[in-house]
């Protein structure tokens, strides 16, 4: 029972927070990639709008995927990537 609860809390947390982190990573990265072919303000706004659809997809997937480890790797990994890109970007430049 307790184990079931723990799995549910992890899953909901991954869907909401992990899903957001993953989407943010996708937005930041896509905005950067698209800026090669678009004016960069256009690249960023397009990427950010698409981010909501990415978030929709991954947060639904978080409820469907049975293996929590996969979720941790993909959504947790995406969140770490977002944190690195947002936190460290100015130093990289």
């Amino acid at each position: 029972m307790a184990r079931q609860w723990s799995r549910t809390v992890q899953r909901v947390g991954l869907a909401a927070a992990g899903g957001y982190g993953f989407s943010l990573a996708a937005v930041v990265l896509l905005g950067w990639l698209l800026s090669a072919v678009l004016p960069r303000s256009e690249a960023v706004v397009l990427a950010a709008m698409l981010g909501f659809l990415v978030y929709l997809g991954v947060s639904l997937w978080a409820f469907a995927e049975q293996r929590l480890l996969t979720l941790w790797l993909v959504l947790g990994g995406g969140s770490v990537a977002a944190w690195l890109m947002v936190g460290l970007a100015p130093e990289v430049a």
């Binding site: 943010l24 937005v27 960069r40 890109m85 970007a89 990289v92």
Partner: peptide, 11 residues
Amino acid sequence: YFPDAAALAYD
């Protein structure tokens, strides 16, 4: 909702 969207493109 994406206040850091420009982090890389405008780094």
